[in-house]
Nucleic acid binder design. Structure first.
Lengths: 328, 328
DNA sequence: CTGAAAGCGCTTACAG
DNA sequence: CTGAAAGCGCTTACAG
């Protein structure tokens, strides 16, 4: 059986309070006693029962990370950087998915207060639920999504600026007809982006034309299908801005099948700068942002809130930049 | 403040035992009492304190998932399928990384018995540590890695068979000189693979030639570099079996830069069947295996062990198959 | 059918 | 510098 604090106390010939103090580094314990206790503890392979500890302390020293799909490459660097900060602060990081909805581990952990703070990489939570659960004891940082609320902080990508810059660059290169492959319409995110695109058009006195807007799903397959449909209708875009790199890769594939070369016939810019985008043929020109900065900023905001700081911006923007490669 | 069982008991006018029984669905409580308790609990927004509960029950009903790099695309399907089974069993799944080594969340969770079972997608744990921690109360399933031990179960990919089949196919197509891009030498895994490769050679009475073995790192970049080095030395392989798809993608890139066409000049087979491999140009022929089956098998073995089943194979093999696409 | 009470393994005022 | 004791919020024999 696992050793408890009692076992250690008995073996070391001291009280359990002394064991507790010794192990937690309280200064009141003499060096010799502390050493003896530590030795015994090590020998008995003692580790404090976390549940008992937390039951008393009301703190979990754990940060929860919530997302709905495991292993999305976009977030790899961001999560790693969150993890670094969390570790530096002496906290633990556990990741839970939303599979099972209200009965998912994610919902349970939040509802039961199993974490002292939360970072969200997903938009699939019910806003009402988050509002109900967010509190001084459970502040939340939401990435890449706009959720207002007390104890809820947003870290957003400058989609407006990114799309603006990319579109402007495409127009400047001589294409007045820039197609825009967009994600699901209606989202806040998407509106921001469309605004950026429109602003770039306005810069050049080009009228917005909804025929150039293609709604797809941000996946390779969806980009491929939509592009193929376009080409089969006889429409041949000369310039495309794609809201995601995955979609852009699908666009390249459909183009190649139709004998259209990139960037010769078609200038293409993606968004996100996923790892693959450097390896596609041609390598993808894309709008990037500082992913690890996004992670560290998110974590810093969270800890700031956990430590009771009250003047935190609820709205934080990560800037973007255009990475020039070979597709434009 | 959060409502406790006491608050509910007081508000419902019953004892705390009754609340506990009612909420946990014990049959001894009358329907009317149960209903009243449940109503009050709901009204007070009561949810049982997990730490207190676990402190008593000594069970966490949580499975830990351990890996060292977040978001590796190879495991996406596998993890999703683990998650499904875990959820179906009414357990929670939390993922922890190894960042921080002995001070990582992963080590802490295992040492402190924060989980009732563990699945490993990483080889970075100290074997001694796993042996020390694995127990009847914390069985472990290790994927794609050979670790012997009580309460430790392995789910392995049939690398031998996969490499054998791929190499054989390449030879059958007329290439007697099959290059083998391998991972780090010395690993169990790699030995298995090399054996498969050698066996295929033996089939055709071809002598093993270490000049055809290229050690790389399973990454795109490493595959690219090694291939480039080969080509710059004037060596032009006509057939390559690559131990990972990422590496194969790098090989394609280096080949293209040197004007070598795949599959025209070079026949290439990868391993793992990552999502991208269907989208590369040319689409990659690769050795695949049933990823979601690997996940469900892992989870089933784990629960079987948790439920005290003692006759579980510690050695389970997932078979492979060759996916024919365009690179060979 | 319901309740009083012990106890899970810790932490932490309080007393000495 | 150390210890006895209360208490965190639950579950679960035990008694009635």
């Amino acid at each position: 059986m696992k050793a408890t604090i009692k076992d250690v106390a008995k073996a070391a010939g001291v009280s359990i309070s002394t064991v507790s103090y010794a192990i937690n580094g309280n200064e009141r314990i003499s060096e010799t006693t502390r050493q003896r206790v530590l030795d015994v503890a090590k020998e008995l392979n003692y580790v404090a029962n976390r549940n008992a500890k937390l039951l008393k302390q009301k703190k979990t020293r754990t940060i929860g990370l919530f997302f709905n799909s495991w292993f999305s490459p976009i977030y790899s660097d961001t999560v790693h950087s969150i993890e670094k900060t969390v570790h530096k602060m002496g906290y633990d990081l556990v990741a839970c998915s939303l599979y099972g909805e209200e009965h998912s581990t994610a919902y349970k952990y939040l509802r039961d207060g199993m974490v002292d703070g939360a970072v969200f990489l997903t938009s699939s939570f019910d806003d009402k639920f988050l509002h109900a659960v967010a509190s001084e004891d459970l502040p939340m940082v939401v990435l890449n999504q706009q959720i207002q609320g007390l104890h809820i902080y947003n870290v957003l990508i400058d989609h407006y600026g990114g799309d603006y810059t990319a579109t402007k660059a495409l127009i400047s290169s001589g294409c007045r007809e820039v197609y825009y492959f967009s994600g699901s319409p209606g989202s806040y995110d998407n509106q921001q982006r469309l605004d950026g695109y429109s602003a770039a058009l306005a810069c050049f006195n080009i009228e917005f034309n909804s025929e150039f807007i293609v709604h797809a799903e941000l996946t390779e397959e969806s980009g491929y299908q939509q592009m193929k449909a376009l080409l089969e209708k006889g429409v041949v875009p000369r310039a495309i801005f794609s809201s995601s790199d995955e979609m852009a890769i699908g666009i390249i594939r459909a183009s190649r099948e139709h004998g259209i070369t990139v960037p010769g016939d078609l200038k293409l810019v993606g968004f996100n700068d996923i790892p693959e985008s450097g390896f596609t043929v041609p390598a993808l020109t894309t709008v990037s942002y500082h992913k690890s900065k996004m992670g560290s900023l998110a974590a810093e905001i969270l800890f700031s809130a956990i430590n009771g700081n009250s003047d935190i911006d609820s709205h934080n923007i990560i800037s973007t930049c255009l990475i020039k490669r070979d597709s434009f």
